[in-house]
C-alpha cells in the first residue's frame, strides 16, 4: 500500500517538474506583464508542493489507510486488455472504417468482457450498432469514418 502511494506522488511530482520546466521555457514574463508560462508555472508549483507533502506522508506511512488503493493483478490485466482493445479499435477506423470495427468491438465486449451466449452477443452487437448509427449518423448527421479499405474498393 505504501509503495503505491509513493509511486503515485512520485508520478504527480514528476509531472509537475516537467510542466514547470516547460512553463519556464515558455517564459514567465513580469508581474506587470505575465507571460504564457506564468499560470502553468504556478499550477505546476502548486502540484509539485502538494506531491512533495503527500510523498513525505506516504514515506512516513501516515494517513493514507482510508483510500482503497488495492490493485489486484487479475483486474489490472483485464482492464489493460480492454483498454488496449479500445485503443486498437480507434486505430482501426482509418483503414477498416467505423461500422466493421465497432461490430467487432461490440462482439468482444459482449462475449469476452461479460460472457453471454453467441446468439445474444450477435443480436446485442447488431442492435447497439444500429441504434448508434441511426442516432449519430442519420439523425444527428455525424460523419463517421468510412475506412480507406472500402473507399478504395468502391473507387
Amino acid at each position: 500500500m505504501k509503495r503505491v502511494w509513493v509511486i503515485t506522488y512520485l508520478v504527480w511530482g514528476g509531472l509537475a517538474l516537467a510542466a514547470a520546466a516547460e512553463a519556464g521555457r515558455l517564459g514567465f514574463g513580469s508581474f506587470g506583464r505575465p507571460g504564457p508560462g506564468f499560470l502553468p508555472f504556478l499550477a505546476a508549483a502548486g502540484m509539485g508542493g502538494l506531491s512533495l507533502l503527500g510523498l513525505v506522508r506516504a514515506a512516513a506511512g501516515r494517513g493514507e489507510a482510508g483510500a482503497s488503493a488495492a490493485f489486484r493483478g487479475a483486474d489490472l490485466l483485464r482492464i489493460g486488455i480492454v483498454a488496449g482493445v479500445l485503443f486498437l479499435y480507434v486505430a482501426g477506423w482509418d483503414l477498416f472504417g467505423f461500422l466493421p470495427c465497432t461490430f467487432v468491438l461490440l462482439l468482444f465486449l459482449f462475449r469476452c468482457v461479460e460472457p453471454l451466449r453467441w446468439r445474444t452477443v450477435f443480436l446485442g452487437a447488431a442492435f447497439t450498432l444500429a441504434l448508434t448509427h441511426i442516432l449519430f449518423a442519420v439523425l444527428l448527421g455525424a460523419r463517421l469514418p468510412a475506412g480507406r479499405l472500402w473507399s478504395s474498393f468502391l473507387n
Binding site: L86, Y89, V90, T102, L105, L106, L109, F110, V113, E114, G124, A125, T128, L129, L131, T132, F136, L140, A142, R143, L144
Partner: peptide, 16 residues
C-alpha cells in the same frame, strides 16, 4: 447490455 452502449456513446460522442 448497458456497458457496451455507454462505451460506444462515449467514443462516438467525443469523435463527433
Amino acid at each position: 447490455f448497458l456497458m457496451p452502449a455507454i462505451v460506444l456513446f462515449c467514443v462516438v460522442g467525443s469523435y463527433s
